[in-house]
Computed example of a mutant assay.
Amino acid sequence: MEVILQQFANLSILIYIVSTMLSMGLSFFPKQFIEPLQDKKLILKSLAANFILVPLLTYIILQLIPLQPGLAIGLVLMAAGAGSPFMLKLVQFIKADMAFAVGLMLILSTVTLIYLPLSLSFLLPDISVNSLSIAVSLLVLIFLPLLGGTALKWRYSKLAEIIKPTFNQISNIFLFVVVLLYLGLNYQDFLSVFGTGGLLAALIFVLASYFIGYMLGGPSKNTKTVLGMGTAIRNSSAAFVVALANFSAQYEVMAMIIVVYSLSIIVMMLISGEIGKRTKKSEDI
């Protein structure tokens, strides 16, 4: 029974990833991939924040807080992947620069497809990973659904608007199923996150990542907030793909991915709530 549930958990991850990418693709026209490139300085700072400074931050955290190998791998995988669609919901709530948020997410997601498989040999020098296999998995599970959804949005925009909420709901449901199943099947591994410094490392990672993005996102306060959230909320889909392909027997890896992603959502929701209150007060004055 446990084996069947584990297989269903792995299948749920795949459904979550594909439905998330399809939903993302159905939200944007192809031109929205190109528009953000106009501000090259801001894009370069965004790339530096997500693909240079966050991995460097992760290295520092792991030197200060030694973690079990599986937990460390999970944190590294989250550090190496950027471009979470959940960021858009928060940006919409706080009424920040939505155009920049969309472009940022698309660019970070695209760069992740190239950066993640190439960087793991440097970020995880003591562990053997198949970079080609990772690249193919990312292409099939992330890029193709994203591209397919975008093509459908461009060709049949009305149909895309109709089916997008369905894929969005499927994504949310299966993310919940993934968390529930992995908590139930591997609760001891999740408890280990709280008892070995993993939770502290995850919290420092999320807060410091937000600070890095915020500081590099200027001069506009709107873009600072967007980049802060875009840097703090990592690409769990890409991390899941790599974890399934290379570390499926190490449940601590999946535990750390889920903990970091969940914690980033909670912390960013608290921050966005505070920003939303301040925005409302300024509008009332």
Rank of each mutant, 00 (worst) to 15 (best):
N222W: 07
G198V: 06
Y115C: 07
F33I: 04
T150W: 01
L183M: 15
T110H: 14
Q38N: 02
L118V: 00
S262M: 14
L14W: 08
A49Y: 09
S12E: 10
A238S: 15
L22K: 04
F194E: 11
P55E: 13
L138R: 03
V129Q: 05
N50H: 14
L132K: 14
S19P: 12
K224Q: 15
A245Q: 10
P69S: 02
I275V: 13
L22N: 08
K281Y: 07
L180E: 01
L26V: 10
I134W: 01
E2L: 12
I15H: 11
A80V: 14
W154Y: 08
G184D: 07
T225K: 05
K221G: 14
N186P: 02
K280L: 10
N222R: 06
T225Y: 05
G148V: 06
K224H: 09
G148I: 12
I266K: 06
F190N: 03
I61E: 04
L199I: 14
S157C: 01
F33M: 06
N10D: 12
L181H: 07
A249V: 15
Y214D: 08
K277T: 00
M254N: 09
P66G: 05
T223Q: 05
Q68E: 08
I275C: 02
T223F: 03
Y16V: 04
V140D: 00
K224G: 09
P125Q: 13
E161K: 15
L113M: 13
Q38L: 04
I266G: 03
Q169R: 09
G213Q: 13
